[in-house]
Design a protein around this nucleic acid. Sequence first.
DNA 1: CCCAGCCTGGTTTTT
DNA 2: CCAGGCTGGG
Length: 804
Amino acid sequence: MQQEFDFSEKKPEVPKEEIPKEEIKEEEEFTMDGNYLEGLNGVQRLAVETVKGPVMIIAGPGSGKTRVLTYRIAHLIRLGMNPYNILALTFTNKAAKEMKDRIRKIVGTLSANSIWMGTFHSIFARILRIEANELGYPSNFTIYDTDDAKTLIKNIVSEQNLNPDLYKANLVYNRISNAKSNLLTPQAYLKHQGIRNADAAAKRPQIGKLYHLYSERCQRAGAMDFDDLLFKMHELLNLAPEILQKYQNKFQYLMIDEFQDTNHAQYSIARKLVANHRNVCVVGDDAQSIYAFRGATIDNILNFEKDYPELTTLKLEQNYRSTKRIVDLANGIIQKNSHQIAKEIWTQNSEGGKIQLVHAVSDSEEAKIIADNIVVERLRYHYNNDEFAILYRTNAQSRVFEEALRRKGIPYRVYGGLSFYQRKEIKDLMAYLRLTVNHKDEEAMRRVINYPVRGIGKTSLKKIAAWANEEERTMWDIMCRIPQYKLATRTQNAIVKFVKMIKLFAQMLKQKDAYDLAKYIAKTCGLQNHLHNDKSVEGLTRYENLQELFNSIKEFTDNKRELAPNNVEVDMEVDASLGVYLQEVSLLTDADDNKDDSGKVKLMTVHAAKGLEFPCVYIVGLEEELFPSAMASKRSNDIEEERRLFYVAVTRAEKKLMLSHANCRYRFGKLQYCEPSRFIEEISKEELEEIGNKPRASFRPQRDSHDAFKDSISSNISSAKRQQEKQQQLRNRSNIPNIANFKASDNRKLKEGFRILHQRFGAGTVLKLEGIGDKRMAIIKFDTLGEKKMVLRFAKLMFKEDGT
DNA sequence: CCCAGCCTGGTTTTT
DNA sequence: CCAGGCTGGG
């Protein structure tokens, strides 16, 4: 089936002749006749070739969705569409990157790089940066992360003398986020009767006002939060017909991946952009919608047909990823849900091994069984470490598995969790960088104005904030004219000096690239020295992290340099300045950095695993209140989302799938009894291979006490327990002091203890500890397992006198 | 004004 | 268990 293809207004800005020779060579693997179409099945091919008008592709898991999307884009380019006119939106940077890499292989680097492909947030940020002035924003606006936003809300709540228990930052932030996702302005929010009633009923009538103030403050600070990137984009398109037209003409073709995860704002923007040519292709799977909590709505899929009556709907139902047993299990799971588009996933793959279900006594036993199993599978079927993935519901669950894997000497990588960019020392330097680029950035300023200490304390800051609010100016403005205000001379001088310093940094923005400037700033502001002088173990790690940040900035500038000569558009794609760096980095997550993860077992949440596949998958912690989460048990809608989440997890697996749950686990620092998840009950047991102790009611510890737990399992003592005892014995024998609470004054004992630890572990350095107190940690590094470094963390250390 | 250390309250998933 | 708030001594 060959389509005619004719877009008016198309300017071939990248003529074929300009493509460098080696790229053409690369292309020849896939000739113009469309060799690249040959590996596709009928529906896939139709999906690739139906290029005009609205198309919706319902793509089951493992149905070759990414392949279809990439080939489709390649196909468009082949048909003469300028890559520069294609907009492809994804939800994660990873997905965008993967697609770009694959397209690059088909159409060459130059074309691939010209496609506007990225996350909603990053693409819109890029556009907003260009158009910021239209919205009364500076083009170097800051992007507030969730922490910044919540701190700002906290400040506003306290300024308004509202009860912080009632107006919790989290809650207020969610309300605001919700409003923005639904394109409600503060004014509309305040007017909306239903919302007003709801807020009043919840005894929180002031939320509308807080939303209003929050928006004002963001605007004043030249800052947008994540939701603003969508919200303001929509506002921009509404602002003037010319602007809308400009982007409608620019983006002749729009593709949206993971369409089931779009929220109202995203959908509205998309609809506006394609209103004229209606060339929009969305790919999604209602059964994999797992982001309702952040405003995603399945309605977008259901309504799509109404908005586009001429819609072509295609269903990709053949699964190429998983064994029959896994596909059957997945189908069985999802059919329990009531709302969904009818479809049946099927596969021609072989039956595969039975799905295993592990009943573990405790969370540590669960982890041990899985670590053991990885070793066995590896030997038996010659799997590589990186072919295993452990999927869990919450990030906190990773700890036990890390320990178990470490004990077995299995290298691993944890994805997600606390991102590198959320570490204190990183945020501190970033705040300096942000402040340099955008002086108005209030959250950045509050963070660093007195760090390292320069004698500008809380009281002074409060005064400045008060003056700023009074005059409706930024705090920076006030500080620039600080001699006009009444303050102690010493503080005044300190502020003048601080302002001078930041201004000095700003002057260098144009001359230096991001890397040079960042290094200069770190040195001059005193942060680098401050960390360098901190000789405690953690101080050292912090210093190292800072160096790591420099490395990443260096990588960024080098990358941009490489791109620069080839790129058609001169904007942030090739701009190596600090401002662009900040913009890109604030939208990055931990999963995005391309740290080397070959040869490592992968640990991540189910959410993070979406869009990925692994030969062997372990889904762990299948317990009521955990997976499904306790929050979800209340509403049936949420349970369905949890079930979809389970569905997503199951369908990540190619060959081997193991499910597990524990009878007891530590949660919130307490030992708890756990019911097996209802999802386990829902599975037909015939195809299962059940491993381990069946759950027994007698395991239930009374009053959640540790002793009751010990008694209840003493008859059937778990291997985890024995392991623990063995460890303990090992410790005693080698005289390793036990670790518990300690005070900073115990420094000498501490040092002695670490000397012993050093001897015991031998392989590495035990670093000096000074001034360790509450919630500080000690970190021991040593080389093992061919990994560069291992880090052990001991919270709250103390050596008891008697060595027990 | 600064900091260490105590105390309390809260814990899903992410751009 | 852990982050953040609060307090009281320097």
